[in-house]
């Protein structure tokens, strides 16, 4: 039958499994992307070639197809992929595996009894990459690439809730680049942007992966340190202060030196809300500015 060619012509992976989850059909798309030929896999258990499918979620969905004639929609959002395949176009794509939406459904015999499971595999890597980019745009500052204020505020709320439940301490550092306006006025906005980026990179290299560092607005930055008491937070801030003070940033052959002022506050049992914690750090930062800049104070 000429029409049967469709099975191998479509740009979709098609797999047919029997009730014991042995492979009965394996189309050309699957052969191409898995590098496993139909001859090799047909008649054998799918788990033999793809042990990662030997998991509750996959078996549950197979069972629901067999028991109810159900259709299952295995979304990329939850499962990332069913089959660990290489992405087709690696250009600009950060995923290790092809991202997939998979659909499962029943194939019935003449008496309507479900005899086989079909699986269709759709490559959605590009859509997923695009979506990831949108998410990043939504939570990150375009200039510096660090988190934006909105994301920071949502995370500090979460951390505040966690503190209420588990009594874990955490601290925040508010940072402001001293005399930033002067850099802009003297060397231009490009130089100012360069400083913001360089400063961000420098802080990022000092803090831990669990810490949340964000551009709060203008030349003001904020850092949340989970599981960190005031003493440790102060020493991190002092470390950053020294580091920045002793670094010469070079912008188009012009050496630039900056200092920063910082205010630190720690979450206490009597802190009423996340906002008041921020306010305390901000007050401390104001004090640091007022008493001469290039220093760390706490409240």
């Amino acid at each position: 039958m000429i029409f049967e060619q469709i099975f191998n012509m479509v740009n979709v992976g098609i797999v047919i499994l029997d009730r014991d989850l042995n492979v009965r059909q394996w189309n050309r798309w699957m052969e191409t992307h898995s590098k496993i030929s139909g001859n090799e896999i047909i008649g054998k258990s799918i788990f033999h070639f793809f042990p990662s499918l030997d998991a509750p979620w996959f078996k549950r969905n197979c069972k629901s197809v067999l028991a109810f004639g159900n259709f299952s929609f295995l979304s990329q959002k939850l499962h990332k992929y069913c089959f660990p395949l290489k992405p087709v176009n690696t250009f600009g794509i950060k995923f290790d595996h092809m991202q997939q939406n998979c659909t499962m459904g029943p194939l019935r015999d003449q008496t309507n009894v479900v005899e086989y499971i079909f699986l269709m595999v759709h490559d959605v890597t590009e859509v997923a990459a695009y979506e990831q980019k949108l998410i990043e745009m939504n939570i990150k500052d375009a200039l510096t690439g660090v988190y934006n204020r909105r994301y920071f505020e949502s995370r500090i709320e979460e951390e505040f809730e966690r503190h209420k439940r588990y009594k874990r301490s955490f601290s925040i550092i508010m940072q402001d680049i001293d005399y930033f306006k002067k850099i802009n006025d003297t060397y231009g906005h490009q130089a100012g942007d360069f400083i913001l980026k360089s400063f961000s990179t420098s802080v990022m290299s000092r803090i831990r992966a669990v810490d949340i560092f964000a551009r709060y607005g203008g030349e003001e930055f904020c850092c949340m340190l989970p599981e960190t008491e005031l003493v440790s937070a102060l020493s991190v801030a002092e470390d950053i202060r020294k580091r920045i003070e002793h670094t010469t940033f070079e912008f188009k052959n012009t050496p630039l030196n900056i200092t920063i002022s910082q205010g630190v506050s720690e979450m206490k049992p009597d802190t009423s809300c996340a906002e008041s914690l921020l306010k305390k750090a901000d007050d401390a930062l104001y004090e640091a500015k007022r008493s001469g800049r290039n220093r760390v104070l706490n409240k």
């Binding site: 969905n61 629901s64 028991a67 109810f68 004639g69 159900n70 259709f71 929609f73 979304s75 939850l78």
Partner: peptide
């Protein structure tokens, strides 16, 4: 997860 559970429950009854 809600969608997956819903899919199974609805499929079970309708099926």
């Amino acid at each position: 997860i809600l969608l997956e559970i819903g899919n199974i429950l609805i499929g079970a009854c309708v099926g």
